Amino acid sequence: MSHLAPYPVRLADEITRQLGQLADHLSQLPPTQAAEVIARVLDSDAGVLGGVTHLVATGSVFAKGQAGKGALPAEVWLALGRASNVLHDVALDLEEHMDTLQHVGAQPATTSAKPPAPAPLVVRRRR
């Protein structure tokens, strides 16, 4: 008889599988739908990014308690804490672009005679 993984492990596996499916679909969506999906995923309150950030922060709290008991090295706790902070910072950086993504996602799909002009790609870094 095979040993079944506990529910939380199966849930994590299922979420990972569904994220892969979503990425596959995203690559094939029309631009307006892709922008809408990206905006929902990146929502820092109710989206996937916010959920992952919360999950990593919760893992950091768990690891802190376990590190305090000597069951985990302190480096695990510190790494999870750093990851949580970085994810939070990324969410804040992306939040300024949410209105644009939502606007693009709300536009009806039209076929215009003149395609939009490509934007120059500029790398800006602020910190």
Rank of each mutant, 00 (worst) to 15 (best):
1 M>A: 14
7 Y>A: 10
8 P>L: 06
9 V>L: 02
10 R>M: 10
13 D>L: 01
15 I>T: 09
17 R>L: 07
18 Q>C: 02
19 L>N: 08
19 L>Q: 03
20 G>A: 01
22 L>D: 01
22 L>Y: 00
23 A>M: 09
26 L>Q: 05
27 S>V: 12
31 P>Y: 14
31 P>W: 15
32 T>H: 15
34 A>V: 06
35 A>F: 01
38 I>D: 01
38 I>C: 04
40 R>P: 02
43 D>G: 06
46 A>S: 05
48 V>K: 01
48 V>F: 07
48 V>Y: 00
49 L>R: 03
49 L>E: 00
52 V>N: 03
53 T>N: 07
54 H>D: 02
55 L>K: 03
57 A>D: 09
58 T>G: 10
60 S>R: 01
63 A>W: 06
64 K>E: 04
65 G>Q: 01
66 Q>V: 04
67 A>M: 03
67 A>K: 06
70 G>C: 07
71 A>K: 07
71 A>D: 05
72 L>T: 06
73 P>E: 13
73 P>I: 10
77 W>E: 04
78 L>I: 07
78 L>P: 00
78 L>V: 04
80 L>Y: 11
81 G>P: 00
81 G>H: 13
81 G>Q: 08
82 R>E: 07
82 R>Y: 14
84 S>I: 11
84 S>P: 09
86 V>K: 05
86 V>W: 07
87 L>F: 13
87 L>I: 04
87 L>P: 04
89 D>I: 13
91 A>P: 07
92 L>D: 07
93 D>T: 08
93 D>M: 11
93 D>N: 14
94 L>S: 04
95 E>H: 11
100 T>Y: 15
100 T>I: 10
101 L>M: 05
102 Q>S: 08
102 Q>C: 01
103 H>P: 01
104 V>W: 10
106 A>D: 10
106 A>K: 06
109 A>W: 13
110 T>M: 11
113 A>D: 11
113 A>N: 08
114 K>F: 15
117 A>V: 14
119 A>S: 14
119 A>R: 15
119 A>L: 15
119 A>G: 09
120 P>V: 03
123 V>G: 11
124 R>A: 11
124 R>V: 13
125 R>N: 04
127 R>D: 10
